[in-house]
Simulated assay, not measured.
Amino acid sequence: MDRLAAMATFVRVVEQGSLSAAARSLPSSLTAVSRQISALEERLGTRLLLRTTRHLALTDDGRLFYERAKAILGEISEVEAALSRDGDQPAGRIRISAPTLMGRQLLAPLLAEFLRRHPSLSVDLLLVDREVDMIEEDVQLALRIGHLPDSAIVARKLGTVQMIVCGSPAYLARRGTPTVPGDLARHDCLLFSETPGVAEWRFADGTKSGRKIRMAGKLWVNSLEALVTAARDGAGLARAPSWQVARDLAAGSLARVLAEYERPPAPLHLLFQPSRPASRKTRAFVDYLAAQWRNASPFGNANEPIAITE
């Protein structure tokens, strides 16, 4: 059995969703594809796929093998591209993760131009509001908000994210402007949460943990975009990332309140896979991102430049 060919066939089956679709795209016969998958499972000593006449699903081992196989095949393609005539051009696939809203509003609009400049590259943009396992999920670059617990992580600081409380001028004219966090009890507060109930906003009070204010929201939303829209329309006060409401604040459609009680901003980092040296494709994306944000960063000035060191 050609192990590399079987691995490529397995990846194609998963991405096409069926053995027959994979056979048509290769092209190959359905019998040959089925035999390759069976031989691969026999060699590994485990089931990779659960197959019925109408459905195909990955087992846990199959999901792990798919992610690793896809990464290996991607690395092989990148090496081949580096040794070809066009090896001076970045090639291959970059898998990038980012928080959902940040990725949708700040990263996704940059990708069309990046791909136009680098036609041999492709991008997987994974938008998730959780910390990804960069090795397990084969993510080469990840945007992450917050302090990094592991000092060994390879990262570059892009800037900071400040959570601010804001409301529309019309709402503040109607209900008054809070001057201390305790005033929020008398205001309509708009809360971001997947599960309505009781939320807490933290404010600076000279201690490390800060002061907690329990909030009984007038409106609960699981989308920051919808939350800011409601605040802009005068529904109440919202707490949102500074980069998200920067234009509204500049335009005057939202006004910042309780600024003197804000907690220190959280850092935003770009993380790299610690197990791999910086590749040509990751350098290309980081250089592009740096150029796009050099004069108009949505996160303010970083403490260090966006760069990769060997």
Results as ranks from 00 to 15, higher is better:
residue 7 M to H: 01
residue 10 F to S: 06
residue 11 V to T: 07
residue 14 V to N: 08
residue 14 V to F: 08
residue 15 E to D: 08
residue 17 G to W: 12
residue 22 A to S: 05
residue 22 A to K: 08
residue 24 R to W: 02
residue 43 R to G: 01
residue 45 G to T: 10
residue 45 G to P: 03
residue 46 T to E: 15
residue 50 L to V: 15
residue 51 R to D: 06
residue 56 L to S: 05
residue 65 F to S: 03
residue 73 L to E: 02
residue 79 V to E: 10
residue 79 V to A: 11
residue 85 R to H: 15
residue 86 D to Y: 12
residue 96 I to W: 01
residue 107 L to D: 00
residue 107 L to I: 11
residue 117 R to C: 06
residue 119 P to R: 02
residue 119 P to Q: 01
residue 131 E to Y: 02
residue 131 E to C: 00
residue 131 E to T: 10
residue 136 E to H: 10
residue 137 E to I: 04
residue 144 R to G: 04
residue 146 G to W: 08
residue 146 G to L: 10
residue 162 Q to K: 14
residue 163 M to P: 00
residue 171 Y to P: 01
residue 172 L to Q: 08
residue 180 V to N: 04
residue 180 V to L: 02
residue 186 R to E: 13
residue 194 E to W: 07
residue 199 A to P: 03
residue 202 R to V: 10
residue 204 A to H: 14
residue 217 G to L: 02
residue 217 G to C: 02
residue 223 S to Q: 09
residue 227 L to Q: 08
residue 229 T to F: 03
residue 232 R to K: 15
residue 243 W to D: 01
residue 243 W to C: 04
residue 254 L to T: 13
residue 255 A to F: 07
residue 257 V to G: 05
residue 257 V to Q: 05
residue 258 L to H: 04
residue 258 L to T: 04
residue 262 E to L: 14
residue 265 P to K: 15
residue 270 L to A: 08
residue 276 R to H: 14
residue 280 R to I: 01
residue 284 A to Y: 02
residue 285 F to E: 00
residue 290 A to R: 15
residue 290 A to S: 14
residue 292 Q to W: 03
residue 295 N to G: 09
residue 299 F to G: 02
residue 300 G to V: 02
residue 304 E to R: 14
residue 310 E to N: 07
